[in-house]
Design a protein around this nucleic acid. Structure first.
Lengths: 263, 263
DNA sequence: AGATATTTGTTCGTATGTATT
DNA sequence: TAATACATACGAACAAATATC
C-alpha cells in the first residue's frame, strides 16, 4: 500500500463539509487576501509564494479553495504556477499577451467594425512611427526588411494570400516592440489583435488584394527609409498615408464582402 | 435521507488520478474550450451555460477541474455564477470597470509619464470630440454644462483644488459615454484612469492651477458650442488645442514637482 | 410563509505524473 | 537511477443558497 495516512483508514467519507461558512465566495476573498499578503510582504516579480500546504494553514482554507484562489490570481496573470519541487506560485508582472487577452474579452460582444478600429490606427500608428526615431537601430531595420520579403511578390496560392496579410501586420507588431512609450505600444498592438480577430477580416484576407499588398509594401519601404534618416516628420506622414490607404481599401472590401454575404 | 447517489457506496478510493494526462494545465484548456463553445453556440450575454454535471460529461473532466475552469472565466468577468435552481454560469458582458482594472495591472510596473499618456490623449480626444457630432443631444450638453459649474470659479480651499481637477476629468469621461466607437471610448477613458493613478498627478493636483482651470473651462465651453452646432471640424480642433494646452501645463508642473522633490 | 428540489460551494481523501536532487 | 517533494487531478459527501410550488 502506498500512503495510509490519518488514523485507521477513514476512506472517503470524511467531509464534515463546509464547516463554518465564513462567508461565501471564499476563493475570491482568499485571492484578495493573497494580493494583500503580497503587497504587505513587498514581494517582487520572481518571488515565490508559500506553497499550498502552508497557505492552507496560513489562511485556514482547504486545498480546493486555495487552488481556486491561486487560479484566480493566475487568471489575472499576477502569479505563475510551476510544478515539481521548487514549484508553486511565483509573483509575476503581467504579460503583454495576457493583458491583451483579458482586454479582448471586453470587446467580445461589442461588434466592432473596421471603421472603428482604423479610426484609432490612423491616429496612433503615425505617432508610433515617429516615436521610433532615435531608438531604432540598423539591425532593427534590417530585420524589418527581411520580414517584408514575405510579401514583396504576388502570392502564389490562396494560403499565401492570408499569410501575407498577417506578415504585414507582423511588421507593425515589430514596430510596437521598439516603441519607448508603453501605452502607445500596447494600444497599437491591441488594435492589430482586434483586426486579426474580426471575422470580417478573415473573409477579406482570403481574397486577392494586389493593391493592398503592393501599396503597403511601398509605404513600408519608404517608412524604413525615413526612419534610417531619423526623419520623424516624414515617418509620421508616411504612416498616416499608409493607414488612410489601408483603411479605404479595407472598408471597400468590407462593403463588398457584406454585399456578397447578403446575396 | 437526502441524496443517496451512486450504487452502493463506493467510498473515496476512486482516483485513477490524472488518468491520461491529456496535457497539463487542464483547467486553462477547459476554459479556452468553454470560450469556443460559447462562440460556436452563439451564446449571448444572459444565456446560461450547461450546469456542472453536464460539463463534466461533455468535456470528460472532474468536478474540480470544471469548477476551476469556470472560476477562470468568472475571474475574467466572462460569466457570473449563481447558486440554486436555475443557477449556474451565465454569460455576461465584461464590465468596463473590470476590463479597466485588469488592464491597469499591466501598466502597474511600467512607470508611465505624463508625456506618454498625453501623447495618446492628444491624438484620441479630438477624435472623441468629433465622433459626438450627430449623437450628442441638448440634454447631454446641458448635463455637461452643469458639471462645468463645479470649476467655473477659483477654488476656495486646497481640497476643492483637487476636486476641480477630477471634475474636469469627469467631463471627458462623460464624453466617452456618448461615443459610438467602443474602442475609442474605452481608450480615452482608460487614459483618464491612468492619469488619475499617476502619483505625480496627485502631487500636481494638490497645487494651485489657475491657468489650467481657467483655460480648460474656456476650451470646454467653446467645445460644447461647436458640438451644439454639429461642427465636427471645429470640435476636433478645439479639443486638440485643449489637449496641447493641458499637456504643456502638466509637463511644466511635472518638472517643477520633481525639482521640488529632489531638493 | 414554508417545504422542497435543484444547483453551486466547500472540504476531504487519494492517486499519479513530473521535475529536482 | 532512485528517491522525493510537489502540483495536478479525480471522486465523494455534505453545506449553503435559492427558485418554485
Amino acid at each position: 500500500m502506498k500512503a495510509p495516512p490519518g488514523e485507521k483508514k477513514r476512506v472517503g467519507t470524511n467531509a464534515r463539509g463546509a464547516t463554518s461558512a465564513r462567508g461565501r465566495n471564499r476563493p475570491r476573498q482568499l485571492a484578495e487576501a493573497l494580493k494583500d499578503w503580497i503587497a504587505e510582504h513587498a514581494l517582487q516579480p520572481g518571488d515565490r509564494l508559500p506553497q499550498e500546504k502552508e497557505l492552507i494553514e496560513l489562511f485556514k482554507a482547504s486545498r480546493g479553495t486555495v487552488r481556486e484562489a491561486l487560479k484566480l490570481l493566475e487568471a489575472q496573470d499576477l502569479v505563475s504556477i510551476r510544478t515539481g519541487p521548487r514549484g508553486g506560485a511565483y509573483v509575476k508582472d503581467v504579460s503583454l499577451e495576457r493583458a491583451t487577452e483579458l482586454l479582448g474579452n471586453y470587446f467580445f460582444f461589442k461588434n466592432l467594425t473596421i471603421h472603428d478600429i482604423y479610426a484609432l490606427r490612423i491616429q496612433l500608428e503615425p505617432e508610433l512611427a515617429a516615436s521610433l526615431v532615435g531608438v531604432i537601430t540598423q539591425q532593427d531595420i534590417d530585420q524589418l526588411q527581411r520580414l517584408m520579403t514575405r510579401y514583396d511578390h504576388p502570392p502564389q496560392s490562396p494560403g499565401e494570400e492570408r499569410e501575407q496579410r498577417f506578415a504585414e501586420l507582423a511588421f507593425h507588431e515589430t514596430l510596437t516592440e521598439l516603441c519607448p512609450n508603453p501605452v502607445l505600444a500596447f494600444s497599437c498592438r491591441f488594435l492589430i489583435r482586434l483586426l486579426k480577430e474580426l471575422t470580417i477580416c478573415h473573409r477579406i484576407y482570403e481574397r486577392p488584394q494586389p493593391k493592398l499588398r503592393a501599396g503597403g509594401h511601398s509605404y513600408q519601404l519608404k517608412l524604413l527609409e525615413a526612419l534610417r534618416e531619423n526623419d520623424a516628420h516624414g515617418a509620421r506622414n508616411l504612416m498616416h498615408e499608409h493607414m488612410c490607404f489601408a483603411r479605404d481599401l479595407m472598408e471597400t472590401q468590407e462593403a463588398e464582402v457584406l454585399r456578397q454575404f447578403l446575396r
